[in-house]
Amino acid sequence: MIATLFGNLAIFVLSLLVGVEVIGKIPSTLHTPMMSGANAIHGVVLAGAVITASLANSPLGYALTFVAGALAAANVFGGYVVTDRMLQMFTRRAPAPSAAPTADDQKDPS
């Protein structure tokens, strides 16, 4: 048990350092998509929900599985889709001048 914990702790600390190194290089221009992208990555807790599902053996366990699955899936799918939507606007080279903006304006209540 204690050996497993040590292994996991080592992984944790080294990952923190890698995170600091990688994130520190991202310019402020991209901070919003990066925050959203990092947000999507912690949706990996969906894997935790899978383990929960495979072990659940009581009504409370099933309920918690449902909750964990729903919240984690919203995190993963929503996070990646919205990040992609933002970044796709940064990468398009030949803008279609007015099509996209008007569609957005119509939804705009103000």
Binding site: S54, T65, V67, A70, A73, A74, F77, G78, G79, V82
Partner: peptide, 30 residues
Amino acid sequence: ANGSWIGWLALVLGAAAGAAFGIVRARTVK
């Protein structure tokens, strides 16, 4: 693991609902 099928069903239902919510919000947000 040798859990029951109810656990998997709960996961699939939950994940489907969550994914639908997430994708719709992500697509439509201003």
